[in-house]
């Protein structure tokens, strides 16, 4: 080497070398997290590996790292949410970011402001990350096209819920040690579920086998073209799965004639102790919450040994910390 060296360039070169090393970690290039469909398998693995480092932040005496100190995160929620919003809030706080809530009920969207205007106003206040939940599929993409800050999709219509998909993958990998080759059932209201879609994309990219299970009204044939297997008889296949991910049945859908009654749904597709006896002995039971006990899952199963429901909530924190950290870092480097 000749001439004076620049420590910043040196550091960049070293990091680049580390990344180009065979088997070395990849580079996260995304300013936004809008879907799992748009990520590569390496991207997904990088988030899961990064989340591992964040997991112990929550267990030590000072539950905070200064990684996003002085950065501002906005929760922009156009739909009710308790756990996802709380999880993002806590994750931002554990990264030392400041976080504010901007909820639809108190905002000027009631006064007719467009989504585009709302987010441009928010960005003008010097915000670094917008976490958005919206009833319209694609709303986070629209926002991302209109702002320079990071945009994280916390659920858009029936499209995707990428951080839920990532935390589900993280929980499966934690319990089973791998994703590739796992047989995963996703059971219930698949047609209306953004969790199902994010799970499907993530699981297929990492080499798992996905079966959607439910009545034909909730598991239409169209999903076959996305790479899932379909099954309308839970009892016929329940003994095949390593992971059973139960979706919430929205009670308001009963009136829309997609199934005759909650009792009948529960009898055919509910995860009960009796059904669990026919599942694999080491099956992992998951649910994105909130659970309708006695409908899609019995209370005993939700609280049972094989249930990862609370583990999913804990892991959600580490995964959301990793996502915010990686996106912010990518935006500062671009």
């Amino acid at each position: 080497m000749s001439g004076p060296t620049n420590p910043v360039l040196d550091a960049k070169r070293l990091v680049a070398e580390a990344h180009s090393a065979p088997g070395g970690p990849g580079v996260w290039p995304h300013r936004n997290l809008l879907s799992l469909e748009s990520l590569s398998a390496d991207d997904i693995r990088l988030v899961l590996d990064t989340a591992l480092a964040f997991e112990d932040v929550s267990t030590r005496s000072v539950k905070k790292v200064p990684a996003l100190r002085g950065r501002v995160v906005v929760n922009l929620f156009y739909e009710d949410s308790t756990r996802t919003k709380t999880s993002f809030t806590l994750a931002a706080q554990r990264l030392s970011a400041d976080i504010i809530d901007f909820s639809e009920k108190t905002s000027s969207s009631n006064k007719g402001e467009s989504l585009r205007d709302t987010v441009r106003n928010i960005e003008a206040m010097g915000v670094d990350i917008i976490v958005v939940r919206h009833p319209a599929a694609g709303a986070p993409h629209l926002i991302a096209r209109n702002v320079k800050c990071c945009v994280i999709n916390a659920g858009d219509g029936r499209h995707e819920h990428p951080t839920q998909g990532l935390l589900d993958l993280y929980t499966m990998r934690q319990a089973k040690g791998r994703i590739a080759g796992l047989k995963v059932a996703i059971v219930g209201d698949v047609v209306n579920s953004r969790v199902a879609r994010s799970n499907l994309h993530g699981l297929l990219k990492l080499g798992a086998e996905v079966t959607f299970v439910g009545p034909t009204t909730l598991v239409p044939r169209a999903f076959e073209s996305m790479g899932a297997r379909l099954c309308h008889d839970f009892d016929a296949v329940i003994d095949q799965f390593d992971v059973i991910n139960m979706l919430r049945i929205q009670k308001e859908r009963v009136s829309s004639n997609v199934f005759p009654s909650l009792q009948e749904y529960s009898r055919l597709f509910g995860l009960t102790n009796e059904r669990m006896r026919r599942a694999k002995p080491d099956v992992l039971v998951m649910h994105p919450g909130p659970i309708n006990r006695g409908v899609e899952m019995s209370g005993d199963v939700a609280d049972g040994q094989k249930s990862a429901v609370l583990k999913q909530v804990t892991n959600g924190l580490a995964v959301r910390m990793a996502v915010m950290f990686l996106c912010k870092q990518a935006s500062e480097n671009s």
Binding site: V8, V15, N333
Partner: peptide
């Protein structure tokens, strides 16, 4: 963080 490179890898 902003200067260290495309992505600093977080290890445990």
């Amino acid at each position: 963080l902003a200067e260290i490179g495309p992505a600093a890898v977080v290890r445990t």
